[in-house]
Every structure is written in C-alpha cells, then in structure tokens.
C-alpha cells in the first residue's frame, strides 16, 4: 500500500552534514574567515512511503514492478521511505539487498520509519536514514495515481504535484476564519486552505495552513503557511512581531527578521528559496 508522507523531520536543529573528507592538519586555517559555504535550512518534503506488509514474499518485487508500471513517472527516481509498522515484530530482510532491488526498480530508498531495534540497526547498516512517524496524507487509491505526462518527465525532483495534495481531489479550498484572539498554547490548523485571523495572535500561539495565513491584527506567535509544500503561499499581517514565520518549511526566527519590518504591515513570501518581506499596500 502506498501513502504520501509529509516529512517534517528537518524543520529544526538541522546539523551540518557529516564531512567525508578530513583535511590534513594545518590545511584549513581560514575556515572562520571565508564566506558562507552553505546554509542550514528547514524544509518540508512530501515523500512516497512504501508500507511493508510481506517483504519476504517472493512475489513482492514482481507486484511492486506492476504497481510502478501503472504510473512510471510517479515512481521514477522517487525517494522512498520504508514504513515498517506492519512488520516491526519480525526480523528485517537483508536491508542492503532489499535496497539494491528497490534501486533496480529506479526507486531511491532513503530511510525507514516505525521499525523496532532490529529494523533501526539494519537500516543504519545499509546507509538508510531513520524517519519519525510522520503524518500520512490521504491514501492513494490505484485509480488516483497520475498518468505519465511530459511535464512530469521534465521535473527532476520526485514531487509529483497532483497526487500529493493533502485535501481530497475535487474539494475546493475553503478558508478558515478565526475571530477570537489566539492565545498562548493554542494551535490553529486550517486544513486544505487559507487561514484568516481577525484578532491578535499571542506569543506562544501557532497558526498553520496549507494555503496562506492572513492575520488582520498583530502576529506575535508562529505562522506556518504552505505547510503541504506550497511555495506560493504567503503570510500577511498588520503588525509583525512573529516569533517564527515559515513558508513551505523555509523558516525565519524573530531574531533574523530585519528590524524595519517589526511592527509593520507586512507581506511575507518565498522567492527562490528565500523568505522575502514586503510592505502591504
């Protein structure tokens, strides 16, 4: 069974990738002076999950091949997380071999989730990552999987847009409107659409929306727009004091927000992997 997974694992506390190359002593003395060579970012990804039910069955890979054949572009080079929920009590297969056979199908296994000790160890030994449980989006029925098309072939990143929408296909995006102040500790999630708040948002409150977040008052808490991966989502507010803002996983904390926007009427959007702020007209 296939389910799309919204992986939020990298949103906070990203550590720098482990360097494979160790410089010789004395070779790298200007590390602190040289310009920024990388940036740590949070990002939300939709990943295909392969929920394992009978991985040892000799018909597993033939059946998988058939599934892939029905929507080859959907699966081509798709990063895949192996969900071990249904098999966690059983000993894992030879993970290196399993991964190799998945790659033969042109899937890219990137990690394992919901496994036990044995699964965890097998995953690490095979160079796979460990994913947190994650939040499943709608189950994809066979007939919902997208047909191959020219636009999919052009897209290098395995994020097939049509299948990954968190709201069921055909449902219009309805905005959620909140008229009372959003207090510390409260979290409002506008499912599938925009979130409109007509009252102040306190520090310690959290707003989430797959679409845009509008706060026609002061925003002092956290606002996450485009949480399904929509980079076009925006955040609008009348008075910006947010502790954190994010669009499709790309985030800025209050300390990183330019002084001149604090307390102002601001529009926040994502342009070329960067958060951009503009005055509201």
């Amino acid at each position: 069974m296939l389910a799309a997974v919204n992986s939020v694992g990298v949103n906070r506390g990203l550590s720098t990738p482990a360097t494979a190359i160790q410089p010789a002593a004395g070779e790298v003395d200007d590390v602190d002076d040289c310009p920024e060579l990388f940036q740590v970012r949070g990002h939300l990804y939709n990943l295909v999950t392969l929920r394992l039910i009978e991985p040892e069955d000799h018909r597993f890979f033939p059946q998988l091949q058939n599934a892939i054949a029905r929507a080859p572009e959907f699966f081509r080079h798709a990063p895949v997380v192996l969900d071990a929920t249904a098999v966690a009590g059983r000993p894992p297969p030879n993970m290196a071999e399993f991964a190799r056979r998945l790659r033969q199908q042109r899937l890219v296994p990137v990690g394992v989730q919901n496994g036990d000790e044995a699964w965890t160890q097998a995953a690490l030994n095979a160079g796979l990552g460990l994913f947190p449980p994650g939040r499943p989006a709608e189950m994809l029925r066979r007939q919902d999987m997208p047909q191959a098309g020219p636009q999919d072939a052009a897209r290098p990143v395995a994020q097939p847009e049509p299948a990954m929408q968190p709201a069921p296909a055909g449902e219009s995006r309805v905005a959620t409107v909140v008229t009372e102040p959003v207090r510390a500790g409260q979290q409002i999630h506008a499912r599938g659409g925009d979130l409109v708040v007509l009252a102040p948002v306190s520090p310690g409150a959290e707003l989430l929306a797959e679409g845009h977040v509008h706060v026609y008052s002061s925003l002092r808490g956290r606002a996450h727009a485009g949480i399904g991966g929509n980079h076009d989502a925006r955040i609008f507010c009348y008075s910006l004091h947010a502790q954190l803002v994010s669009i499709a996983g790309l985030y800025l904390v209050n300390a990183e927000i330019d002084e001149r926007w604090i307390g102002k009427r601001v529009q926040i959007r994502c342009v070329d992997e960067a958060i951009v702020m503009e005055a509201l007209p």
Binding site: G185, S202, P203
Partner: peptide
C-alpha cells in the same frame, strides 16, 4: 502576561 494569556486560552476552551 504570557502565562495569563495561556490561562485565558484554557478558560475559553
């Protein structure tokens, strides 16, 4: 003030 705000939210809900 922050703790009061939290409490107000709880009183409401």
């Amino acid at each position: 003030v922050r703790d009061s705000d939290r409490m107000i939210g709880l009183l409401t809900s």
